[in-house]
Computed example of a mutant assay.
Amino acid sequence: MVFLTDNEESNKCFLAGLVARSLSISTSNWRCTESLGDYLEKRNIMGIYDVDTCAITRRLRQDGSLIGVLNTEKFKTDEELLEMSRTWNIVGVDLISGVSCTAPYEWVDKTGSDWEFLNKGSEDGNFHVVAYDFGIKHNILRRIASCGCKITVVPCTWPASETLKMKPDGVVFSNGLGDPSAVPYAVEVVKEMLGKVPVFGICMGHQLCGQALGGKTFKMKFGHHGGNHPVRNVRNSRVEISAQVC
Results as ranks from 00 to 15, higher is better:
87 T>S: 15
89 N>Y: 14
89 N>I: 07
89 N>H: 15
91 V>R: 15
92 G>P: 03
94 D>I: 06
96 I>Y: 06
96 I>N: 00
100 S>L: 01
101 C>M: 01
102 T>C: 10
103 A>Q: 14
104 P>M: 05
108 V>Y: 13
108 V>I: 13
110 K>P: 01
112 G>D: 15
115 W>T: 11
117 F>C: 12
118 L>N: 13
120 K>M: 13
120 K>D: 04
122 S>C: 15
122 S>A: 15
123 E>D: 13
126 N>D: 14
131 A>R: 00
132 Y>W: 10
132 Y>T: 02
133 D>P: 00
133 D>C: 03
134 F>Y: 14
134 F>P: 02
136 I>G: 00
137 K>D: 13
138 H>T: 10
140 I>F: 08
141 L>V: 06
141 L>K: 02
147 C>A: 11
149 C>D: 06
149 C>T: 06
150 K>C: 07
150 K>P: 01
152 T>R: 03
153 V>S: 00
154 V>K: 00
157 T>N: 14
158 W>R: 04
158 W>C: 11
159 P>M: 08
160 A>G: 03
161 S>G: 05
162 E>Y: 07
165 K>D: 13
166 M>P: 02
166 M>N: 07
166 M>V: 09
166 M>Y: 03
166 M>S: 13
169 D>E: 11
170 G>S: 09
171 V>S: 04
171 V>L: 09
172 V>F: 14
173 F>Y: 10
174 S>K: 02
176 G>W: 04
176 G>Y: 02
176 G>R: 04
177 L>F: 15
180 P>C: 08
180 P>Y: 04
187 V>M: 05
189 V>L: 08
190 V>R: 02
190 V>E: 01
191 K>V: 07
192 E>Q: 15
193 M>Y: 10
193 M>F: 15
195 G>R: 09
197 V>L: 08
198 P>V: 08
201 G>N: 03
203 C>L: 07
203 C>V: 08
210 G>A: 12
210 G>N: 11
211 Q>H: 10
213 L>N: 09
214 G>C: 05
216 K>V: 12
216 K>N: 12
